[in-house]
Design a protein around this nucleic acid. Structure first.
Lengths: 358, 358
DNA sequence: CAAAAAAATGGTAGCGCTACCAACATTTCT
DNA sequence: AGAAATGTTGGTAGCGCTACCATTTTTTTG
């Protein structure tokens, strides 16, 4: 087994680190670096955390010792001693969702060369699972927490409020932030897409929604609001399912919608996967897009602009949400908490061929 | 700031945990649980790790104390004391890639209710970044490591060999595993897709590839091999780019291919995004699929079956790779290392409308 | 130039847990 | 019956680091 190879592999002959006690990991420690550099352990610790506070001469000797020994700091020991881990806990509802994958990418990029690490948890769109994971995370005393949405359970909210670290709610904005917020309005997005369709002459606009998490619900609410102002609404126009979203689900929901809502001339979709499914189903049934059916998606994934016909969508700043969340956390950890604790990054309606009638 | 709220929030009045030293975190510790239950600390520790080894009477008293105090184990202290963290390091080349998102999902599901946590790193398809992240991970003495592919740098490989924990290379299989492997053959997949197209009568089959990481290279090699056996090959049929893959890149590469390789009658794509881009571009240019151009993708994402026409693809067991990797790790950690250290999960050619000519 | 302030460095005592050994209680064996 | 094996429990000494203070050195100030 590999287990046996560890000592053999790590014990460098001629090294200052000789025969240690059985409990030791065999790796060089801060004390090893200190004795090799001829300084106290605490000075090495300082040189690592805040090089400015150590004279340049000692700093050089310490750096040399670190590279000579191949020293790597033990984050567990640091976390234990300082009662604070350099970890940001991130709670995301789904992994297979492109949208959150891009948020995660933004988070990673925002970290840059900071020592912070990401620990992330997948809540599977379950508030209970979110609370369970949060408790696990809090046990590690994270430096900061990022949670998705604004609909935490009351108990979860209390946990977050007393977490003792910066907390950022992402993907949405709302009135009562736990601490900070970065997102955009899903209601407005749903409304704007629908208004656009009404404007180009659609009258019987359906709404297709899968999963129907709180953000989807708000998009649907925006859709309804657009009708209140302008059009004639009919409950049969709304077709939703609690099942997860997918391209095939888009095709399925469209088939349902078209059979129960006669005269349908457009669909606003919960997200881009559904919209793509609708497009394929229209192609398959020989329904012309946009002449007979207009289509709008949500999120503006990369494929939307390439599709034929290209698909109208609401461009959401997913990557930017991740970056901004980290920027706010880093500012807060550095001591200068942003005075703007609710950041609305907005969205943009991208009008394309699927809603362009001449 | 929230920092100030922590003590206020966590100090439950009337709690056994009273005025602790300033350094303490304020949370109940193992010792608090032990004294409340009237047992030694080590017994609580055992009750937590291996309940079977503690009498049922003490176990109940300990459980009661844990819930009464709201005790949460400090993983950093555990990791420090046992020189081993309950963490599995996962190194993945991309986050925005659906394929790896599903592997990650499989990994998470495979974990089930075990105490293991995932720490994952994004290598951005860079071997140097992979090595850097690996060093960071090794500093935490993970319980196991999962790395993508089989093309690690020699130094990275050495680090993994001496990591002293189970290591699983995923997504590919090959001759010299560092420790264990779960994957499938990309060469065979590329070859099989190409052979299928030759079989249905295509003669001038192009290969479109983006990113061209090692796995893509092997798919391309399989494509070439298929020609060696049957068809007449022409280097102009291959169109690749080091840029990341995307649907628009598929459309772009197809435009290139069709202009430089006259008589093109089919394309084998590196992955499904490219294939979808090709389909859209064909639609846009009025090129009939499959009558004039046949299309095959790779991975068989969910949308492939729904597209119109539906798209042929190689179904790869991504989710299963993640699950299997964890299963092997759990077995190894439990002491019974699987005797089958290289697991080939295979793939399946899904023939659909885009390569069906009557 | 002495006194005060600031900067640089070190010693020591934990952080909360587990490895290791020891002690005792209980069962099984000869 | 006593001896040996097994099971259960606890004490103690760290794991590798940082907080807190003490000490020494350097700089600034009146």
């Amino acid at each position: 087994m590999l287990g046996a190879m560890q000592l053999a592999g790590n014990a460098r002959p001629g090294d200052a680190v000789g025969n240690r006690s059985r409990r030791s990991s065999g790796r060089p420690t801060l004390a090893d670096v200190a004795s090799r550099a001829g300084v106290g352990t605490i000075t090495v610790s300082r040189a690592l955390r805040d090089p400015e506070r150590v004279s340049s001469e000692l700093r050089e000797r310490i750096d040399a010792a670190i590279t000579a020994l191949g020293y790597v700091l033990n984050p567990n020991a640091r976390a234990l001693a300082s009662a604070r881990a350099d970890v940001i806990g991130v709670l995301i509802p789904s992994l297979t969702n492109n949208v959150f994958a891009e948020v995660l990418r933004g988070i990673h990029d925002g970290l840059g060369d900071s020592a912070l690490q990401i620990q992330f948890g997948n809540t599977h769109y379950s508030a209970d699972e979110e609370e369970r994971l949060l408790r696990v995370f809090l046990g590690q005393r994270p430096s900061a927490l990022i949670v998705s949405g604004i609909d935490q359970l009351p108990a979860t909210r209390r946990l977050l409020e007393t977490a003792g670290c910066p907390v950022v709610q992402i993907m949405e904005t709302g009135p009562n932030p736990i601490d900070m917020m970065v997102g955009f309005s899903h209601f407005d997005g749903g409304q704007q897409a629908t208004e656009h369709m009404l404007q180009i002459g659609c009258r019987r606009i359906g709404f297709l929604g899968a999963r129907m998490d709180p953000r989807s619900q708000r998009r649907l609410a925006g859709y309804r609001a657009a009708f209140r102002a302008t059009g004639v609404f009919d409950e049969l126009l709304v077709t939703t399912t609690p099942s997860p979203s997918s391209v095939s689900m888009g095709a399925y929901l469209f088939r349902q919608a078209i059979s129960k809502a006669p005269g349908l001339d457009g669909v606003v979709c919960n997200n881009d996967d559904l919209a793509l499914g609708v497009l394929f189903e229209c192609n398959r049934q020989g329904i012309s897009v946009p002449d007979r059916i207009c289509i709008a998606g949500y999120n503006d994934l990369e494929m939307m602009a390439v599709a034929y016909p290209s698909l109208t969508s609401i461009r959401t700043p997913r990557y930017e949400v991740g970056r901004q969340a980290i920027a706010m956390i880093r500012a807060a950890l550095a001591g200068d908490r942003p005075e703007q604790v609710i950041v609305d990054l907005g969205f943009e309606l991208k009008v394309r061929e699927s809603t362009t009638r001449q």
